[in-house]
Design a protein around this nucleic acid. Structure first.
Lengths: 333, 333
DNA sequence: TTGTAGGCGTTATCAG
DNA sequence: CTGATAACGCCTACAA
């Protein structure tokens, strides 16, 4: 069932059918009705490939995520999908994992699909300024289609970034812990990404501002996993009175370790997580966690995306969104 | 940059370029090399629309999910995406929500994209035998493309289903609770879906097998949310000694309620969740939960999908996968 | 207001 | 092994 069939059955030409299809106002009401009726009867849907071949827009946006089963990523994708669907766009989703080679591979595959633009979710794609060879392929991709980074920051043509102010909030909350009398603050992170680095910088700055030495033994790089974190502490047995984790699962691991050893939370140990996920509400006491305003970041990104696609050349390339700390039972400052 | 440009720069015809592109073996090694070199130099990627227009396959699979931010769904999508990518296929992801009209709308949009097949994740799409008008649009869609239901069951042409044996495992675990001396078993569910109904049926059967009356006041329909569940119990104050929840978040809500009121778990209250999500490991004690073998279900689905696409007409339409109970700290049977 | 015809970039089918 | 050419289904000047 194609445009020719519809044209024949309606007794008009394909041009007229095409006009009806695209809501042209240069069709008489009567003809339009007639054609629409046939289209409905025949359950006709235009061929997207033929359309894409002649027209420009594909009405599809590529979205790349390292791991969609991660709570943070899947929430981001949910927000993005909702906005795209509102604008009648489809989403091509790809999951790249965290390895550079795979990431590059997935980006290439997505670009082959002739998407209108691409959204990269997660700071793993941002690289860092010191490792520019890791971001070369991102800049290369941006030559073909506009790129939108969620929680990443790169200064390059055709790359648009939205990120949360992880540095400021990390600085603040570490300061609060210190003012609360905490001196041995464990810092747990699961990556070396752009946002992890900002969080670490805030943590270190707060310590040095307070004249506390930054102890390497209190800065751990582990996987963001409840059980692994608990097991890690079990082996390390660190001497600490507070913990700042860059993701909630690690913070929950710390809490479980504390409960097992009868360490009182928050009296003897303060714990702060990040991302304000459902995990933060699952524990008793509930977890204090940083809300990084994911929904706002995603909304902003999609708004700017359509702004760019509609030809606006004055779209800001970098936007920062303010995080907040949601205080719950694992802190008492 | 199109196939003509590449042909010209390589000094061959477009037919030859196309052959190289599609790995035909009827091209001399020398020609192939020459063409490949030009393609690399020019960073050429074939136009997917032109390809879709002439050829048959679109190399894209539509995946529909009610809510990608749900842990169960996002894990399913992660498993599916991995397998699809292995086979060099793309994934069009759409999130429909739970309302019939929206579901129908999203299915139509996906089909317009000329996908090769469609995967529907979650029993919300399965309807039930008694509400066949709710599944009419699904059967309609199956006339256009093969449909694959994950955790759904419908007997119709071109619809392939994979589901877990929720009835059997629910029957078993309720039986175990009864044998453990539990008599007032609270049943919590968040939907009227096909799989929820199977779970309820298993629960009721176990009770009646043991000569225990099924009490309507112990069967609650609430949202799958930690806080709402806890608040609900706070108001209801049910008299119960065990709980079987059809999703982990509700079970966690019950656990929090118990801890707040000093009810000992598992001594005075057994709790069993469903889906074996990360939440089950976040609590202390950890949650006993049903592992519904999601990865296996997804793998099976994708395998059968490619089998159908490759023209195999002897693909079984219905497959069942066995669940297991992962015993942890909230039960002691 | 409507119709005709050419083009979009592939793949596939024939001839050579 | 390689090349010419006809689909594929739609959009859009340009004509009528």
């Amino acid at each position: 069932m194609n445009i020719y069939d519809i044209a024949e059955k309606s007794g008009v030409s394909i041009a007229t059918v095409s006009r009806v299809l695209n809501g042209s106002d240069k069709v008489s009401e009567k003809t339009k009705e007639k054609v629409m009726k046939v289209m409905t009867e025949e359950d006709y849907t235009p061929n997207i490939f033929a359309r894409g071949l002649s027209g420009e827009s594909t009405r599809a946006i590529g979205v790349l995520v390292p791991d969609i089963s991660d709570n943070y990523m899947s929430r981001a994708v949910a927000f993005i999908e909702r906005r795209l669907h509102e604008k009648d766009h489809n989403m091509l989703l790809s999951c790249s994992g965290f390895r550079a080679k795979e990431k590059e591979d997935h980006i290439r595959m997505l670009l082959e699909e002739r998407i209108d633009a691409m959204i990269l979710v997660g700071s793993t794609y941002a690289g860092s300024e010191t490792l520019s060879h890791n971001t070369y392929y991102i800049k290369k991709a941006a030559e073909k289609k506009p790129l939108f980074l969620i929680n990443g920051d790169m200064d390059a043509e055709n790359i648009f970034c939205t990120f949360s102010n992880d540095y400021a909030v990390s600085l603040d909350l570490t300061k609060s812990l210190i003012e609360n009398g905490r001196k041995k603050i464990l810092f747990l992170t699961d990556s070396e990404s752009y946002s992890a680095n900002k969080k670490r910088a805030g943590y270190e700055q707060a310590l040095s501002d307070a004249g506390i030495a930054v102890s390497p033994s209190l800065m751990c790089h582990i996987r963001n996993n409840i059980e692994e974190t608990a097991a890690y502490l079990e082996e390390l047995r660190p001497d600490f009175d507070a913990c700042f984790a860059t993701d909630d699962a690690m913070a929950v691991g710390v809490l479980k370790y504390a409960m097992k050893h009868g360490i009182r939370v928050p009296e003897d140990l303060s714990i702060i997580g990040y991302n304000n996920s459902e995990l933060a509400l699952a524990t008793t006491p509930e977890l204090t966690s940083v809300d990084n305003k994911l929904e706002k970041i995603c909304d902003d990104t999609v708004i700017r995306l359509f702004s760019v696609l509609s030809g606006n050349s004055f779209v800001p390339r970098r936007t920062s969104v303010a995080c907040t700390v949601v205080k719950r039972g694992t802190t008492n400052y």
